[in-house]
Amino acid sequence: MGIADLFKKKASGTVAKDRLKLVLVSDRANCSPEIMEQMKNDIIKVISKYVEIDEEKLDIEIAQTDSEGNNGKVPALIANIPIKDLKSPRK
Rank of each mutant, 00 (worst) to 15 (best):
I44W: 10
K84Q: 09
N41E: 11
E34W: 11
K10M: 10
S32Q: 11
V74N: 07
S88I: 05
E55A: 08
K21C: 10
E37W: 05
N80R: 13
A79K: 02
N71F: 02
I47L: 07
R28Q: 04
K21T: 10
L86A: 12
S48D: 11
K45L: 14
S88V: 06
Y50F: 14
V74L: 10
L86S: 11
V46E: 11
A63D: 11
E37K: 15
E34F: 14
I53M: 06
L86T: 11
K73A: 07
E56L: 08
Y50T: 08
A29M: 09
G69D: 11
V25Q: 03
K40N: 09
C31D: 08
I62G: 00
I83Y: 06
K17I: 03
L58P: 04
D66M: 12
I44R: 15
S26N: 06
L22T: 05
V25M: 10
N71G: 02
Q38A: 15
V15Y: 03
K87L: 10
N41P: 00
I60H: 00
T14L: 06
A63P: 01
P33H: 05
N80A: 13
E34D: 15
K57S: 13
P82C: 06
G69W: 01
V23P: 01
N71P: 00
S12P: 11
S48R: 02
D54L: 13
Q38F: 09
S48K: 04
G69E: 06
E68C: 03
K57Y: 08
K73E: 06
Q64F: 09
L22S: 12
L86H: 11
D54N: 15
D54R: 12
P82F: 09
A11I: 00
I47G: 01
E55V: 14
K40Q: 12
I83A: 03
E37S: 15
N71R: 02
I35N: 09
L22P: 07
I47S: 05
L20H: 14
N71L: 04
L86D: 07
S26Y: 03
D66P: 04
L77P: 14
M39T: 01
G72V: 09
L86G: 01
L86V: 12
K45C: 14
I35F: 13
E34K: 12
D85M: 09
K10I: 02
A63F: 06
K87A: 03
S12K: 11
S67W: 06
M39P: 00
K84T: 00
S88A: 13
E68L: 07
I53H: 05
E52I: 15
I83C: 04
S12L: 09
E37H: 12
A76L: 08
E55W: 02
I83D: 04
K84Y: 02
G69K: 09
K73Q: 13
N70V: 14
E52T: 12
S88M: 09
I44Q: 14
D59P: 00
N30V: 04
